[in-house]
Amino acid sequence: MAAGLTDTAEADGREAPASGLPLRGDRVGRAVLGLLLPLGLAIGWEIAVRGGLAQGRLVPPPSRVLATLSDLAASGELWLHVQATLVRVASGFVLGAGLGIALGAVTGTLPLARHLLDPAFQALRAVPSLAWVPLFILWLGILETPKVVLIGVGVFFPVYVGVSGAIASVDRKLVEVGRIFRLSKPALARRILLPAVLPATIVALRTGLGLGFLFVVAAELMGASEGLGYLLVDGQQFGKPEQILAAILTFALLGKAADTILVVLTRPLLRWQDVARDIL
């Protein structure tokens, strides 16, 4: 008996180091791992340019990009552009995601609406969104409205498809639990459908947000006097690759930050999920 206990304890002791691998649960370790490749490339390029191995005229070294970024920040110009871009993405996201959720919910739950609307939406989805640009300019001018609408279109489709698909694939067995307890239609929607589609909806929102950033560039390329997309065009026209890279870097940071905020805000809603992410 005593020997058995000792064996178990030893077995546990042997297992402990295995579960303590640096890749598991160690968030700092994972973050460092994720930074290795970009940092390595950046440092390598910096050394190459400084060492005279490369000119760095068209691909400026990180130090020049960072210097440009800090100049833009110091003059206040960067914040103006960031703000303009964020306002456009946020407006387009709210517009596209709001409509996507509403129409996805309608077509997901009402067969008549699905047969009526879904084929048209699927056909429109097949149109490359940038093809709308000339039409939007003709219809809505060149100011803010067409930009926000274009971003909204980009966000709408992944959210719409995600939400309507998620509703259509809610487990019938769970819906029957609601029926057995005689939930009204609104209660069924609130207590069963909504939580059931939440994970897929959040994934769809993340995809939509990513596309929002994709489309804000397109929107700002079609004519803007401020915004990160404007910085890109400006950098191209005046031959300032460091400014283009600074804008790209800012896009990357903003996109990642926005996605992280979305994930963090929605994480408490998904605590119940039994996912493989943590063990893979």
Partner: peptide, 18 residues
């Protein structure tokens, strides 16, 4: 479905988010 009648299914059918 009637308030006086309850049903236990073959599988638990618990709502995973509760």
């Amino acid at each position: 479905p009637h308030p006086g009648v309850g049903l236990v299914f073959q599988e638990p059918r618990l709502l995973p988010w509760l």
